[in-house]
């Protein structure tokens, strides 16, 4: 069942993305809409390094993460001065700037024409061009990220992040460095988001800027919201749900004339119904009394 394997690979990629976003959106209370940008930076780093310089996966992965981390630190030192709604708008801006760079820096990214011919992953002579081994690799990465995030959350740093999302001033007053913690969290989250980017580029073997737009950021955020902002297990299920739902709708026989739009409408309805029915009370971040 290649089709199912393909969908599972997509699901693992989105799980990684959503879990990394959960670290800043759920635990640190910074709703970011720039995550697709970091996803894209990871993908582009790999694509450029492996197509132009034939670097292997084991080198492009850390390089992609480091580049993402550096960019995230640069961005966050500025963006974190804003809070709440202003932070969201700020990250939308960052997302659009990153997209703009991918789309217009022709000499580096080949602009809208994208980069094709990215080779499959090759680790220690093992060629992962087939879907099953690739899925196993991405499951390993997903598990590793999950464990790592759990570790962070349980640690003192994680508790500081939770405290920040509850009350920044109080956290500051007990002597924690709020600013530094936020920058660190942002950088870690961006570095983790680079991993699915690298995997995605090798998997699809062709990338172009349209895969890394604000819409994609909104989709990743939707997974986090449906899964529960601080619920890493919930995100797992939500990712599976949101990736599989539009695919399942392909199997519903509908009159050809209206099928495409009708499927989208059904998608919208199911989304609303699921939110209604599940007792997710959610976690209020944007508004606080």
């Amino acid at each position: 069942m290649e089709y199912l394997l393909h969908l599972l690979i997509l699901i693992t990629i989105y799980i990684m993305l959503a879990q990394s976003l959960s670290l800043i959106a759920g635990f640190a209370g910074m709703i970011s809409l720039a995550h697709a940008g970091f996803f894209g930076i990871g993908a582009y780093t790999t694509a450029i390094l492996s197509v132009n310089y034939h670097f292997p996966f084991l080198i492009t992965l850390p390089v992609g993460m480091v580049i993402c981390g550096i960019i995230a630190i640069l961005i966050s030192t500025i963006a974190i001065r804003t809070v709440d709604d202003y932070f969201i708008i700020c990250t939308i801006g960052i997302q659009i700037v990153i997209f703009s760079i991918m789309n217009n820096w022709m000499s580096l990214t080949n602009g809208p024409l994208g980069i094709s011919g990215i080779q499959p992953i090759n680790i220690f002579g093992l060629n992962l061009s087939n879907k099953l081994p690739f899925l196993l690799l991405s499951i390993i990465f997903t598990l590793a990220i999950y464990m790592f995030l759990r570790f962070i959350i349980k640690s003192g740093f994680g508790r500081v992040l939770k405290a920040i999302s509850e009350d920044e001033i109080y956290t500051q007053s007990i002597g924690k460095n709020v600013y530094l913690s936020k920058v660190t969290a942002f950088a870690i989250s961006a570095m983790i988001a680079a991993i699915p980017g690298v995997l995605y580029a090798h998997y699809i073997s062709y990338i172009d800027p349209t895969s890394f737009t604000v819409d994609e950021s909104i989709f990743i955020l939707s997974i986090v919201i449906i899964g529960g902002m601080r619920n890493l297990m919930g995100i797992l299920i939500a990712a599976a749900f949101l990736v599989l739902l539009p695919e399942a709708l392909r199997f519903i026989g509908l009159p050809n004339l209206i099928a495409a739009n009708l499927r989208q409408i059904i998608y919208g309805i199911i989304l609303i119904v699921v939110i209604f029915k599940s007792d997710t009370i959610g976690f209020t971040i944007v508004t606080k009394e």
Binding site: M1, L245, E247, A248, I270, V274, S278
Partner: peptide, 16 residues
């Protein structure tokens, strides 16, 4: 809280 989503996912995979 994920009952509904899980049910839907199960249905989807079975259908596929």
């Amino acid at each position: 809280r994920f009952n509904y989503q899980l049910e839907i996912i199960t249905v989807i995979v079975t259908v596929m």
